[in-house]
Design a protein around this nucleic acid. Structure first.
Lengths: 110, 110
DNA sequence: GTTACTATCAACCATATGGTTTAGTATTTC
DNA sequence: GAAATACTAAACCATATGGTTGATAGTAAC
């Protein structure tokens, strides 16, 4: 189980925006500058910068100053936290079946 | 890989709200009526109903009319789709290591 | 049939969000 | 040093979101 400093709803909220999802997908292929990310989205640098800010606050990426550019790099931890959360609550049905199994087995033992 | 009728960003957006996250957690323990969900959140029925609508649209739950109540039931498919997405893009680092491995192996073969 | 209960709908409100533009700060290039 | 590049900050705007209240509809209970 991985934990992120940002709370899980912040991560989900950051991901709940098509533009930012595409940024994540792009970043999954490697490091990108703000300009790299803005260009295919047909968006101003300022706009892209704000989106990156949201993703950074959610812990989904880091921004490193390199010369006059900012290089963004994906941070798997936050994505893994989201995966763990969804895994946990999508498993509820299996858990309940497991509990049912256990209850039946216990009954059989009596 | 599980697919949901709602697009993945809709699922994330639905989850990106603390109130709705708590509803999901509550629902993971079993079926709940709108009233059941509204009460611990100190929220009007109308407010809860709107949240449930968002979750329903995202495919995260179903609402069934039963007498004068509506019974909500979690639908794992959407959560699994979110899990798969986050899994895929959090694995980017492993993927790149795998690619590196492959490249090195190929070099060794020459 | 009347009354109470559960939920939805519509209207409304305050605030958040996603975008822009304009201006400003570093940094690189010439 | 001057000009161009990459980005951020601030102000602003339109729309979305999260909540309420009040009215209405269907169901249950008496």
């Amino acid at each position: 189980m991985v934990d992120s400093n940002a709370s899980i709803d912040t991560v989900f909220r950051a991901l709940g925006e098509p533009t930012r999802l595409r940024m994540i997908q792009e970043l999954s292929r490697g490091e990108r500058t703000i300009g790299d990310l803005a260009e295919p989205l047909d968006m101003t640098l300022a706009g892209a910068s704000k989106h990156i800010g949201v993703l950074e606050q959610a812990g989904l990426l880091t921004r490193e100053k390199r010369g006059r550019e900012r290089v963004c790099r994906l941070r798997p931890e936050a994505l893994l936290a989201a995966r763990d959360w969804t895994q946990k609550y999508s498993a509820f049905w299996n858990d309940r079946l497991d509990a049912l199994d256990a209850a039946i087995r216990e009954q059989d033992d009596e």
